[in-house]
Lab assay of single mutants.
Amino acid sequence: IINNLKLIREKKKISQSELAALLEVSRQTINGIEKNKYNPSLQLALKIAYYLNTPLEDIFQW
């Protein structure tokens, strides 16, 4: 999986903590996703895309 979450999140000036709060997950979860240590569920990936107002395929590429 190619993961552009960190790049997109930083472009939008959103911290890991802010995104985690919006998604109701821990900051460690966001960190793990960004470091490719954790693959989000489809539901979480869709929520990330929604809150970042970015197409899912721009954030994650399988």
Rank of each mutant, 00 (worst) to 15 (best):
I1G: 10
I1Q: 10
I1P: 09
I1L: 12
I2N: 10
I2A: 11
I2V: 12
I2Y: 11
I2P: 11
I2L: 11
I2W: 10
I2S: 13
I2E: 10
I2C: 13
N3K: 02
N3P: 03
N3W: 04
N3R: 03
N3S: 07
N4T: 06
N4K: 09
N4I: 04
L5R: 00
L5T: 02
L5K: 00
L5S: 03
L5D: 01
L5E: 00
L5W: 01
K6N: 04
K6S: 07
K6G: 11
K6P: 04
K6F: 05
L7K: 13
L7G: 09
L7W: 10
L7M: 13
I8D: 02
I8A: 06
I8C: 07
R9P: 01
R9Y: 03
R9E: 01
R9G: 01
R9S: 02
E10H: 09
E10N: 09
K11Y: 09
K11L: 11
K11P: 02
K11H: 12
K12S: 08
K12N: 09
K12R: 09
K12T: 06
K12Y: 04
K12W: 05
K13D: 11
K13T: 06
K13I: 05
K13L: 08
K13M: 10
K13H: 12
K13C: 09
I14E: 02
I14S: 02
I14H: 03
I14A: 01
S15Q: 06
S15G: 07
S15L: 06
S15C: 04
Q16G: 05
Q16S: 06
Q16Y: 04
Q16C: 03
Q16I: 14
Q16T: 07
S17I: 13
S17A: 14
S17G: 13
S17N: 10
E18H: 11
E18R: 12
E18K: 12
E18S: 09
E18N: 09
L19Y: 01
L19E: 00
L19W: 02
L19T: 00
A20Y: 03
A20M: 04
A20K: 01
A20D: 02
A21Q: 12
A21Y: 08
A21W: 06
A21C: 11
L22N: 14
L22I: 09
L22Q: 11
L22E: 08
L22R: 08
L22F: 14
L22K: 12
L22D: 08
L23G: 02
L23M: 07
L23A: 12
L23F: 01
L23Y: 02
V25A: 03
V25H: 03
V25M: 05
V25P: 00
V25L: 05
V25E: 05
V25K: 03
S26H: 06
S26G: 07
R27N: 10
R27D: 12
R27E: 15
Q28A: 14
Q28E: 15
Q28S: 14
Q28K: 14
T29I: 14
T29R: 08
T29A: 09
T29D: 06
T29Y: 15
I30D: 00
I30R: 01
I30N: 00
N31Q: 13
N31S: 12
N31F: 07
N31R: 14
N31M: 14
N31G: 09
N31P: 02
N31E: 15
G32R: 15
G32E: 15
G32F: 12
G32M: 14
I33P: 00
I33F: 06
I33T: 01
E34G: 03
E34N: 03
E34W: 02
E34P: 01
E34R: 00
K35A: 15
K35V: 11
K35D: 14
K35N: 15
K35F: 06
K35Y: 10
K35G: 11
N36Q: 13
N36Y: 09
N36P: 03
N36D: 07
N36M: 12
N36L: 08
N36I: 04
K37E: 15
K37S: 12
K37D: 12
K37F: 15
Y38S: 09
Y38W: 09
Y38L: 14
N39H: 13
N39I: 13
N39R: 15
N39F: 11
N39M: 15
N39D: 08
N39T: 14
N39E: 12
P40S: 03
P40W: 03
P40Y: 05
P40H: 03
P40M: 05
S41L: 03
S41R: 06
S41W: 03
S41P: 12
L42F: 11
L42N: 07
L42Y: 14
L42P: 08
Q43F: 09
Q43C: 14
Q43A: 14
Q43T: 10
Q43W: 10
Q43N: 11
L44D: 04
L44F: 09
L44E: 04
L44W: 03
L44S: 02
L44T: 05
L44A: 02
L44P: 01
L44R: 02
A45C: 11
A45E: 01
A45H: 02
A45R: 09
A45L: 06
A45G: 07
A45S: 08
A45W: 11
L46F: 08
L46N: 14
L46P: 00
K47L: 07
K47F: 03
K47M: 07
K47Y: 03
I48W: 03
I48R: 00
A49Q: 04
A49L: 01
A49D: 00
A49K: 02
A49R: 02
Y50E: 13
Y50C: 10
Y50L: 10
Y51L: 13
Y51P: 02
Y51H: 15
Y51K: 06
Y51C: 10
L52K: 01
L52Q: 00
L52F: 05
L52N: 00
N53L: 04
N53K: 08
N53V: 08
N53W: 03
N53Y: 04
N53M: 08
T54L: 05
T54W: 05
T54F: 04
T54N: 03
P55H: 06
P55N: 07
P55V: 05
L56V: 14
L56R: 03
L56K: 03
L56T: 04
E57Q: 10
E57I: 07
D58W: 08
D58Q: 11
D58V: 12
D58S: 09
D58C: 10
D58H: 10
I59P: 00
I59M: 05
I59W: 02
I59L: 12
F60S: 00
F60N: 01
F60V: 02
F60T: 00
F60R: 00
F60L: 03
Q61R: 11
Q61L: 10
Q61H: 09
Q61S: 14
Q61F: 12
Q61K: 11
W62D: 09
W62C: 14
W62K: 09
W62V: 12
W62F: 15
